[in-house]
């Protein structure tokens, strides 16, 4: 019984850390996109053609 509770505790800790990682991924993605200037679609091609 003691080991089952221990295993459940381990599982709970792993769930918390894994979900924290998922939140960090999501948050990081939002932040990176917020501070990255958006490139206008096809702008590079248009520039090349202009040359």
């Amino acid at each position: 019984m003691k080991e089952i509770i221990l295993a459940l505790e381990f599982y709970l800790i792993v769930i918390v850390i894994a979900m924290l990682v998922a939140f960090i991924i999501k948050g990081m993605l939002v932040l990176v996109r917020l501070f990255t200037p958006k490139q206008v679609a096809g702008a590079k091609d248009a520039g090349n053609k202009g040359k």
């Binding site: 769930i15 894994a18 979900m19 991924i25």
Partner: peptide
């Protein structure tokens, strides 16, 4: 992983 972080993590758990 970056596209589906929660789905991927839930399955992995």
């Amino acid at each position: 992983v970056l596209r589906f972080p929660f789905t991927s993590m839930l399955i992995a758990l």
